[in-house]
Write a protein that binds this DNA or RNA. Sequence first.
DNA 1: CAAATATACTTAACACCGTTAATAATCCAA
DNA 2: TTGGATTATTAACGGTGTTAAGTATATTTG
Lengths: 212, 212
Amino acid sequence: MGIAERKEKQKAEIRKMILDASMKLFVEEGFENVSIRKIADLIEYSPTTVYLYFKDKNEILYNLHELGFQKMMEYNEKTRLWEIKNPLVRLHKMGENYIAFGLNNPEFYDLMFIQNAPMETLNRDSCDWKSGDVALGKLKECLAECIELKLIVPGDLDAMTMTIWSTVHGMVSLAIRNRFNILVSEEELMPKMQQSLNWLLNILDTSGKKND
Amino acid sequence: MGIAERKEKQKAEIRKMILDASMKLFVEEGFENVSIRKIADLIEYSPTTVYLYFKDKNEILYNLHELGFQKMMEYNEKTRLWEIKNPLVRLHKMGENYIAFGLNNPEFYDLMFIQNAPMETLNRDSCDWKSGDVALGKLKECLAECIELKLIVPGDLDAMTMTIWSTVHGMVSLAIRNRFNILVSEEELMPKMQQSLNWLLNILDTSGKKND
DNA sequence: CAAATATACTTAACACCGTTAATAATCCAA
DNA sequence: TTGGATTATTAACGGTGTTAAGTATATTTG
Protein backbone atom coordinates (compact mmCIF):
# COMPACT_ATOMS: atom_id res chain seq x y z
CA MET A 1 0.00 0.00 0.00
CA GLY A 2 2.60 2.55 -1.07
CA ILE A 3 -0.08 4.99 -2.04
CA ALA A 4 -1.83 5.16 1.30
CA GLU A 5 1.55 5.54 2.93
CA ARG A 6 2.47 8.52 0.78
CA LYS A 7 -0.89 10.09 1.55
CA GLU A 8 -0.25 9.73 5.24
CA LYS A 9 3.09 11.42 4.79
CA GLN A 10 1.53 14.28 2.88
CA LYS A 11 -1.05 14.70 5.59
CA ALA A 12 1.67 14.75 8.23
CA GLU A 13 3.60 17.26 6.15
CA ILE A 14 0.76 19.73 6.06
CA ARG A 15 0.09 19.21 9.74
CA LYS A 16 3.70 20.15 10.30
CA MET A 17 3.37 23.18 8.05
CA ILE A 18 0.44 24.37 10.13
CA LEU A 19 2.30 23.85 13.38
CA ASP A 20 5.41 25.55 12.03
CA ALA A 21 3.36 28.54 10.95
CA SER A 22 1.63 28.65 14.35
CA MET A 23 4.99 28.50 16.05
CA LYS A 24 6.36 31.30 13.89
CA LEU A 25 3.39 33.50 14.72
CA PHE A 26 3.62 32.51 18.35
CA VAL A 27 7.26 33.38 18.89
CA GLU A 28 7.39 36.38 16.57
CA GLU A 29 4.04 38.03 17.28
CA GLY A 30 2.90 36.47 20.53
CA PHE A 31 0.05 34.30 21.68
CA GLU A 32 -2.68 36.75 20.81
CA ASN A 33 -1.65 36.84 17.18
CA VAL A 34 -1.95 33.12 16.61
CA SER A 35 -5.18 32.96 14.63
CA ILE A 36 -6.48 30.38 12.20
CA ARG A 37 -6.67 33.04 9.54
CA LYS A 38 -3.07 34.16 9.96
CA ILE A 39 -1.85 30.58 9.99
CA ALA A 40 -3.75 29.97 6.76
CA ASP A 41 -2.24 33.09 5.22
CA LEU A 42 1.25 31.93 6.13
CA ILE A 43 0.90 28.48 4.64
CA GLU A 44 -1.08 29.88 1.72
CA TYR A 45 -4.18 27.83 2.24
CA SER A 46 -7.70 28.93 3.04
CA PRO A 47 -8.64 29.11 6.74
CA THR A 48 -11.05 26.22 6.45
CA THR A 49 -8.30 23.88 5.27
CA VAL A 50 -6.74 24.10 8.72
CA TYR A 51 -9.83 22.37 10.07
CA LEU A 52 -9.10 19.33 7.91
CA TYR A 53 -5.92 18.77 9.91
CA PHE A 54 -6.89 20.00 13.35
CA LYS A 55 -10.21 19.72 15.15
CA ASP A 56 -10.06 23.34 16.33
CA LYS A 57 -7.71 26.06 17.48
CA ASN A 58 -7.32 24.47 20.90
CA GLU A 59 -5.76 21.41 19.34
CA ILE A 60 -3.14 23.59 17.69
CA LEU A 61 -2.46 25.37 20.96
CA TYR A 62 -2.16 22.00 22.66
CA ASN A 63 0.60 21.07 20.23
CA LEU A 64 2.37 24.38 20.83
CA HIS A 65 2.12 23.85 24.56
CA GLU A 66 3.87 20.50 24.14
CA LEU A 67 6.70 22.21 22.31
CA GLY A 68 6.93 24.45 25.36
CA PHE A 69 7.49 21.44 27.57
CA GLN A 70 10.17 20.24 25.18
CA LYS A 71 11.91 23.60 25.47
CA MET A 72 11.68 23.39 29.23
CA MET A 73 13.26 19.96 29.26
CA GLU A 74 16.10 21.27 27.12
CA TYR A 75 16.68 23.89 29.81
CA ASN A 76 17.16 21.13 32.34
CA GLU A 77 19.40 19.10 30.10
CA LYS A 78 21.62 22.02 29.18
CA THR A 79 22.25 22.80 32.83
CA ARG A 80 22.95 19.08 33.46
CA LEU A 81 20.26 19.01 36.12
CA TRP A 82 19.89 15.24 36.15
CA GLU A 83 23.55 14.73 36.90
CA ILE A 84 23.17 16.39 40.28
CA LYS A 85 23.31 13.59 42.82
CA ASN A 86 22.13 15.42 45.95
CA PRO A 87 18.34 15.62 45.57
CA LEU A 88 18.09 18.78 47.65
CA VAL A 89 20.63 20.58 45.50
CA ARG A 90 18.80 19.22 42.47
CA LEU A 91 15.50 20.48 43.84
CA HIS A 92 17.00 23.93 44.27
CA LYS A 93 18.40 23.99 40.73
CA MET A 94 15.10 22.67 39.41
CA GLY A 95 13.29 25.59 40.97
CA GLU A 96 15.79 28.05 39.55
CA ASN A 97 15.43 26.55 36.09
CA TYR A 98 11.65 26.61 36.32
CA ILE A 99 11.69 30.29 37.20
CA ALA A 100 14.29 31.15 34.57
CA PHE A 101 12.32 29.30 31.91
CA GLY A 102 9.12 31.06 32.86
CA LEU A 103 10.58 34.55 32.86
CA ASN A 104 12.51 34.01 29.63
CA ASN A 105 9.60 32.37 27.82
CA PRO A 106 6.49 34.03 29.22
CA GLU A 107 4.36 33.20 26.18
CA PHE A 108 5.22 29.51 26.40
CA TYR A 109 4.75 29.52 30.14
CA ASP A 110 1.37 31.11 29.67
CA LEU A 111 0.28 28.36 27.31
CA MET A 112 1.67 25.59 29.49
CA PHE A 113 0.37 26.63 32.90
CA ILE A 114 -2.00 29.57 32.70
CA GLN A 115 -4.19 29.40 29.63
CA ASN A 116 -7.22 27.18 29.66
CA ALA A 117 -7.30 26.58 25.91
CA PRO A 118 -4.72 23.79 25.55
CA MET A 119 -6.36 21.78 28.34
CA GLU A 120 -9.69 21.82 26.61
CA THR A 121 -8.56 19.24 24.08
CA LEU A 122 -8.16 16.80 26.97
CA ASN A 123 -11.30 15.25 28.33
CA ARG A 124 -11.74 16.52 31.85
CA ASP A 125 -12.12 13.23 33.68
CA SER A 126 -9.36 11.08 32.28
CA CYS A 127 -6.62 13.56 33.30
CA ASP A 128 -4.40 12.59 30.39
CA TRP A 129 -2.14 15.63 30.56
CA LYS A 130 0.98 13.71 29.57
CA SER A 131 3.47 16.58 29.49
CA GLY A 132 2.40 17.87 32.84
CA ASP A 133 2.46 14.41 34.31
CA VAL A 134 6.04 13.78 33.19
CA ALA A 135 7.30 17.15 34.43
CA LEU A 136 5.55 16.86 37.77
CA GLY A 137 6.87 13.30 38.08
CA LYS A 138 10.42 14.66 38.16
CA LEU A 139 9.58 17.00 41.01
CA LYS A 140 7.82 14.23 42.91
CA GLU A 141 10.76 11.85 42.48
CA CYS A 142 13.17 14.50 43.66
CA LEU A 143 11.11 15.21 46.76
CA ALA A 144 10.76 11.50 47.50
CA GLU A 145 14.53 11.16 47.40
CA CYS A 146 14.90 14.13 49.72
CA ILE A 147 12.54 12.56 52.21
CA GLU A 148 14.28 9.21 52.02
CA LEU A 149 17.64 10.80 52.76
CA LYS A 150 16.02 12.88 55.51
CA LEU A 151 17.16 16.10 53.87
CA ILE A 152 13.86 17.92 54.25
CA VAL A 153 10.99 18.10 56.68
CA PRO A 154 8.77 15.18 55.71
CA GLY A 155 5.07 15.25 54.92
CA ASP A 156 2.52 13.85 52.52
CA LEU A 157 4.33 13.56 49.18
CA ASP A 158 1.46 14.88 47.07
CA ALA A 159 0.88 17.80 49.42
CA MET A 160 4.57 18.66 49.38
CA THR A 161 4.69 18.46 45.60
CA MET A 162 1.70 20.76 45.48
CA THR A 163 3.34 23.29 47.78
CA ILE A 164 6.65 23.45 45.92
CA TRP A 165 5.09 23.58 42.48
CA SER A 166 2.56 26.16 43.64
CA THR A 167 5.30 28.39 45.03
CA VAL A 168 7.39 28.50 41.88
CA HIS A 169 4.34 28.68 39.63
CA GLY A 170 2.89 31.42 41.78
CA MET A 171 6.09 33.41 41.53
CA VAL A 172 6.40 33.09 37.77
CA SER A 173 2.74 33.73 37.02
CA LEU A 174 2.47 36.74 39.33
CA ALA A 175 5.65 38.12 37.78
CA ILE A 176 4.44 37.53 34.23
CA ARG A 177 1.12 39.18 34.99
CA ASN A 178 2.81 42.22 36.56
CA ARG A 179 1.42 41.64 40.05
CA PHE A 180 4.82 42.02 41.65
CA ASN A 181 5.22 45.60 40.47
CA ILE A 182 3.93 46.82 43.81
CA LEU A 183 6.54 44.75 45.65
CA VAL A 184 9.73 45.18 43.65
CA SER A 185 11.07 47.07 40.64
CA GLU A 186 11.85 45.43 37.33
CA GLU A 187 15.56 45.07 38.13
CA GLU A 188 15.03 43.75 41.63
CA LEU A 189 12.49 41.16 40.51
CA MET A 190 14.82 38.34 39.56
CA PRO A 191 17.10 38.63 42.64
CA LYS A 192 14.10 38.89 44.93
CA MET A 193 12.54 35.79 43.42
CA GLN A 194 15.85 34.01 43.90
CA GLN A 195 15.88 35.15 47.52
CA SER A 196 12.30 34.03 47.92
CA LEU A 197 13.11 30.56 46.64
CA ASN A 198 16.18 30.38 48.84
CA TRP A 199 14.16 31.19 51.92
CA LEU A 200 11.64 28.45 51.16
CA LEU A 201 14.31 25.83 50.55
CA ASN A 202 16.13 26.97 53.63
CA ILE A 203 13.17 26.46 55.94
CA LEU A 204 12.37 23.03 54.59
CA ASP A 205 15.99 21.96 54.83
CA THR A 206 16.55 19.90 57.98
CA SER A 207 20.35 20.00 57.87
CA GLY A 208 20.83 23.41 59.44
CA LYS A 209 18.43 22.78 62.30
CA LYS A 210 18.72 20.85 65.52
CA ASN A 211 15.99 18.35 64.85
CA ASP A 212 15.55 14.99 66.52
CA MET B 1 -23.77 75.74 39.87
CA GLY B 2 -26.74 73.43 40.44
CA ILE B 3 -26.88 72.52 36.80
CA ALA B 4 -23.33 71.28 36.43
CA GLU B 5 -23.81 69.33 39.62
CA ARG B 6 -26.89 67.57 38.33
CA LYS B 7 -25.05 66.73 35.13
CA GLU B 8 -22.25 65.18 37.10
CA LYS B 9 -24.74 63.07 38.98
CA GLN B 10 -26.36 61.92 35.77
CA LYS B 11 -22.97 60.99 34.40
CA ALA B 12 -22.18 59.03 37.53
CA GLU B 13 -25.55 57.33 37.31
CA ILE B 14 -24.93 56.00 33.82
CA ARG B 15 -21.43 54.95 34.79
CA LYS B 16 -23.03 52.93 37.55
CA MET B 17 -25.57 51.47 35.14
CA ILE B 18 -22.75 50.28 32.93
CA LEU B 19 -20.87 48.74 35.83
CA ASP B 20 -24.02 47.09 37.16
CA ALA B 21 -24.73 45.59 33.77
CA SER B 22 -21.13 44.41 33.47
CA MET B 23 -21.38 42.86 36.91
CA LYS B 24 -24.62 41.11 36.04
CA LEU B 25 -23.09 39.64 32.89
CA PHE B 26 -19.95 38.74 34.78
CA VAL B 27 -21.60 36.79 37.58
CA GLU B 28 -24.40 35.30 35.54
CA GLU B 29 -22.65 34.47 32.30
CA GLY B 30 -18.97 34.57 33.14
CA PHE B 31 -15.97 36.64 32.18
CA GLU B 32 -16.02 35.67 28.52
CA ASN B 33 -19.52 37.01 28.07
CA VAL B 34 -18.78 40.50 29.30
CA SER B 35 -18.74 42.40 26.02
CA ILE B 36 -19.32 46.04 25.26
CA ARG B 37 -22.20 45.09 23.00
CA LYS B 38 -23.94 42.97 25.61
CA ILE B 39 -23.49 45.67 28.22
CA ALA B 40 -25.01 48.18 25.81
CA ASP B 41 -27.93 45.85 25.12
CA LEU B 42 -28.59 45.48 28.82
CA ILE B 43 -28.65 49.20 29.58
CA GLU B 44 -30.46 49.90 26.29
CA TYR B 45 -27.88 52.23 24.82
CA SER B 46 -25.79 51.83 21.73
CA PRO B 47 -22.34 50.23 22.15
CA THR B 48 -20.56 53.46 21.35
CA THR B 49 -22.21 55.23 24.26
CA VAL B 50 -20.24 53.04 26.63
CA TYR B 51 -17.10 54.72 25.32
CA LEU B 52 -18.37 58.09 26.52
CA TYR B 53 -18.16 56.83 30.10
CA PHE B 54 -15.19 54.44 29.95
CA LYS B 55 -11.98 54.73 27.97
CA ASP B 56 -12.13 51.10 26.89
CA LYS B 57 -13.14 47.62 28.02
CA ASN B 58 -10.08 47.31 30.26
CA GLU B 59 -11.27 50.21 32.34
CA ILE B 60 -14.56 48.41 32.96
CA LEU B 61 -12.72 45.22 33.85
CA TYR B 62 -10.54 47.23 36.21
CA ASN B 63 -13.63 48.38 38.05
CA LEU B 64 -14.96 44.83 38.23
CA HIS B 65 -11.63 43.63 39.57
CA GLU B 66 -11.92 46.17 42.38
CA LEU B 67 -15.31 44.79 43.30
CA GLY B 68 -13.57 41.43 43.55
CA PHE B 69 -11.19 42.84 46.14
CA GLN B 70 -14.16 44.21 48.04
CA LYS B 71 -15.73 40.76 48.05
CA MET B 72 -12.48 39.28 49.27
CA MET B 73 -12.29 41.74 52.12
CA GLU B 74 -15.82 40.82 53.11
CA TYR B 75 -14.63 37.22 53.34
CA ASN B 76 -12.04 38.27 55.87
CA GLU B 77 -14.42 40.40 57.85
CA LYS B 78 -17.11 37.74 58.02
CA THR B 79 -14.66 35.25 59.46
CA ARG B 80 -13.46 37.89 61.95
CA LEU B 81 -9.91 37.50 60.69
CA TRP B 82 -8.67 40.77 62.12
CA GLU B 83 -9.74 39.85 65.63
CA ILE B 84 -7.22 37.02 65.73
CA LYS B 85 -4.44 38.20 67.98
CA ASN B 86 -1.81 35.55 67.29
CA PRO B 87 -0.27 36.59 63.95
CA LEU B 88 0.70 33.04 63.03
CA VAL B 89 -2.84 31.79 63.57
CA ARG B 90 -4.03 34.82 61.62
CA LEU B 91 -1.60 34.04 58.81
CA HIS B 92 -2.96 30.52 58.63
CA LYS B 93 -6.56 31.67 58.52
CA MET B 94 -5.63 34.31 55.95
CA GLY B 95 -4.26 31.63 53.68
CA GLU B 96 -7.36 29.50 54.12
CA ASN B 97 -9.59 32.45 53.31
CA TYR B 98 -7.54 33.32 50.26
CA ILE B 99 -7.86 29.79 48.92
CA ALA B 100 -11.55 29.56 49.76
CA PHE B 101 -12.24 32.87 48.06
CA GLY B 102 -10.33 31.83 44.97
CA LEU B 103 -12.03 28.48 44.57
CA ASN B 104 -15.50 29.86 45.29
CA ASN B 105 -15.08 32.88 43.02
CA PRO B 106 -12.83 31.68 40.20
CA GLU B 107 -14.03 34.36 37.79
CA PHE B 108 -13.26 37.15 40.22
CA TYR B 109 -9.96 35.56 41.13
CA ASP B 110 -9.09 35.36 37.46
CA LEU B 111 -9.71 39.04 37.00
CA MET B 112 -7.85 40.04 40.15
CA PHE B 113 -4.71 37.96 39.80
CA ILE B 114 -4.51 36.20 36.46
CA GLN B 115 -5.88 38.34 33.66
CA ASN B 116 -3.72 41.03 32.19
CA ALA B 117 -6.58 43.26 31.09
CA PRO B 118 -7.39 45.10 34.34
CA MET B 119 -3.72 45.99 34.88
CA GLU B 120 -3.48 47.62 31.50
CA THR B 121 -5.39 50.66 32.70
CA LEU B 122 -2.55 51.31 35.15
CA ASN B 123 0.57 52.84 33.74
CA ARG B 124 3.34 50.31 34.06
CA ASP B 125 5.92 52.39 35.87
CA SER B 126 3.97 54.10 38.61
CA CYS B 127 2.76 50.78 40.12
CA ASP B 128 -0.48 52.33 41.36
CA TRP B 129 -2.30 49.05 41.91
CA LYS B 130 -4.14 50.25 44.97
CA SER B 131 -6.26 47.19 45.71
CA GLY B 132 -3.32 44.85 45.41
CA ASP B 133 -1.21 47.12 47.54
CA VAL B 134 -3.74 47.17 50.37
CA ALA B 135 -4.30 43.41 50.31
CA LEU B 136 -0.60 42.63 50.18
CA GLY B 137 0.01 45.12 52.98
CA LYS B 138 -2.09 42.97 55.32
CA LEU B 139 0.01 39.92 54.57
CA LYS B 140 3.22 41.88 55.02
CA GLU B 141 2.06 43.27 58.37
CA CYS B 142 1.08 39.84 59.55
CA LEU B 143 4.44 38.39 58.61
CA ALA B 144 6.25 41.29 60.26
CA GLU B 145 4.39 40.58 63.50
CA CYS B 146 5.28 36.91 63.24
CA ILE B 147 8.93 37.77 62.89
CA GLU B 148 8.86 40.20 65.78
CA LEU B 149 7.34 37.58 68.07
CA LYS B 150 9.83 35.04 66.72
CA LEU B 151 7.01 32.73 65.66
CA ILE B 152 8.47 31.92 62.26
CA VAL B 153 11.86 31.46 60.65
CA PRO B 154 12.97 34.99 59.82
CA GLY B 155 14.16 36.32 56.47
CA ASP B 156 13.85 39.30 54.19
CA LEU B 157 10.28 40.57 54.63
CA ASP B 158 9.63 41.19 50.95
CA ALA B 159 11.03 37.81 49.97
CA MET B 160 8.90 36.09 52.60
CA THR B 161 5.81 37.95 51.47
CA MET B 162 6.57 36.85 47.94
CA THR B 163 6.93 33.23 48.93
CA ILE B 164 3.71 33.02 50.93
CA TRP B 165 1.64 34.91 48.39
CA SER B 166 3.13 32.88 45.55
CA THR B 167 2.29 29.62 47.26
CA VAL B 168 -1.38 30.37 47.83
CA HIS B 169 -1.73 32.08 44.46
CA GLY B 170 0.00 29.17 42.78
CA MET B 171 -2.37 26.74 44.43
CA VAL B 172 -5.51 28.63 43.50
CA SER B 173 -4.47 29.42 39.95
CA LEU B 174 -3.28 25.91 39.17
CA ALA B 175 -6.52 24.56 40.62
CA ILE B 176 -8.67 26.99 38.64
CA ARG B 177 -6.84 26.16 35.44
CA ASN B 178 -7.22 22.41 35.98
CA ARG B 179 -3.50 21.72 36.33
CA PHE B 180 -3.99 19.72 39.52
CA ASN B 181 -6.15 17.11 37.81
CA ILE B 182 -3.09 14.91 37.35
CA LEU B 183 -2.32 15.13 41.07
CA VAL B 184 -5.67 14.78 42.81
CA SER B 185 -9.33 14.18 42.00
CA GLU B 186 -12.00 16.84 42.22
CA GLU B 187 -13.11 15.77 45.71
CA GLU B 188 -9.60 15.45 47.09
CA LEU B 189 -8.54 18.85 45.79
CA MET B 190 -9.71 21.02 48.67
CA PRO B 191 -8.41 18.76 51.46
CA LYS B 192 -5.09 18.34 49.67
CA MET B 193 -4.69 22.07 49.29
CA GLN B 194 -5.46 22.45 52.98
CA GLN B 195 -2.82 19.83 53.75
CA SER B 196 -0.41 21.58 51.45
CA LEU B 197 -0.90 24.88 53.26
CA ASN B 198 -0.59 23.18 56.62
CA TRP B 199 2.73 21.66 55.67
CA LEU B 200 4.13 25.02 54.59
CA LEU B 201 3.03 26.78 57.75
CA ASN B 202 4.31 23.91 59.82
CA ILE B 203 7.83 24.11 58.41
CA LEU B 204 8.07 27.84 58.85
CA ASP B 205 6.74 27.64 62.39
CA THR B 206 9.62 27.83 64.87
CA SER B 207 7.60 26.77 67.92
CA GLY B 208 7.76 23.02 67.33
CA LYS B 209 11.46 22.99 66.66
CA LYS B 210 14.50 23.15 68.86
CA ASN B 211 15.95 26.33 67.51
CA ASP B 212 18.48 28.57 69.17
C1' DC C 1 -36.10 85.15 22.03
C1' DA C 2 -33.11 83.33 18.35
C1' DA C 3 -28.67 81.81 16.93
C1' DA C 4 -24.48 79.44 18.11
C1' DT C 5 -22.27 76.17 20.61
C1' DA C 6 -21.51 72.34 23.49
C1' DT C 7 -23.24 67.74 25.01
C1' DA C 8 -25.19 63.21 24.42
C1' DC C 9 -26.08 59.70 21.58
C1' DT C 10 -26.53 56.80 17.30
C1' DT C 11 -25.50 54.77 12.73
C1' DA C 12 -22.28 52.78 9.93
C1' DA C 13 -18.18 51.00 9.27
C1' DC C 14 -13.35 48.89 9.97
C1' DA C 15 -10.77 45.08 10.91
C1' DC C 16 -10.66 41.32 13.12
C1' DC C 17 -12.04 36.48 15.27
C1' DG C 18 -13.52 30.92 15.26
C1' DT C 19 -16.28 27.97 12.91
C1' DT C 20 -19.59 25.60 9.57
C1' DA C 21 -22.35 24.45 5.27
C1' DA C 22 -22.26 24.02 0.65
C1' DT C 23 -19.60 23.58 -3.40
C1' DA C 24 -15.94 22.76 -6.60
C1' DA C 25 -11.77 20.39 -7.96
C1' DT C 26 -8.74 16.57 -7.71
C1' DC C 27 -7.24 11.92 -7.23
C1' DC C 28 -7.72 6.77 -6.95
C1' DA C 29 -10.00 2.44 -7.60
C1' DA C 30 -13.15 -0.37 -9.94
C1' DT D 1 -13.76 5.84 -18.16
C1' DT D 2 -16.83 6.46 -14.67
C1' DG D 3 -18.00 6.92 -9.72
C1' DG D 4 -16.75 7.73 -5.17
C1' DA D 5 -13.68 9.45 -1.81
C1' DT D 6 -10.46 13.01 -0.62
C1' DT D 7 -8.98 17.76 -0.51
C1' DA D 8 -9.63 22.39 -0.83
C1' DT D 9 -12.36 26.57 -1.51
C1' DT D 10 -16.02 30.26 -1.27
C1' DA D 11 -19.40 32.35 1.30
C1' DA D 12 -21.51 32.99 5.23
C1' DC D 13 -22.90 33.19 10.40
C1' DG D 14 -22.45 35.40 14.46
C1' DG D 15 -19.67 37.31 17.15
C1' DT D 16 -15.58 40.86 19.04
C1' DG D 17 -13.38 45.92 20.29
C1' DT D 18 -13.15 50.31 18.52
C1' DT D 19 -13.52 54.74 15.69
C1' DA D 20 -15.31 58.39 12.40
C1' DA D 21 -19.00 60.88 11.12
C1' DG D 22 -23.50 62.49 11.65
C1' DT D 23 -27.77 63.78 14.34
C1' DA D 24 -30.53 65.25 17.75
C1' DT D 25 -30.93 67.64 22.29
C1' DA D 26 -29.83 70.89 25.64
C1' DT D 27 -27.38 74.94 27.21
C1' DT D 28 -25.22 79.23 26.76
C1' DT D 29 -24.52 83.54 24.55
C1' DG D 30 -25.58 87.69 21.66
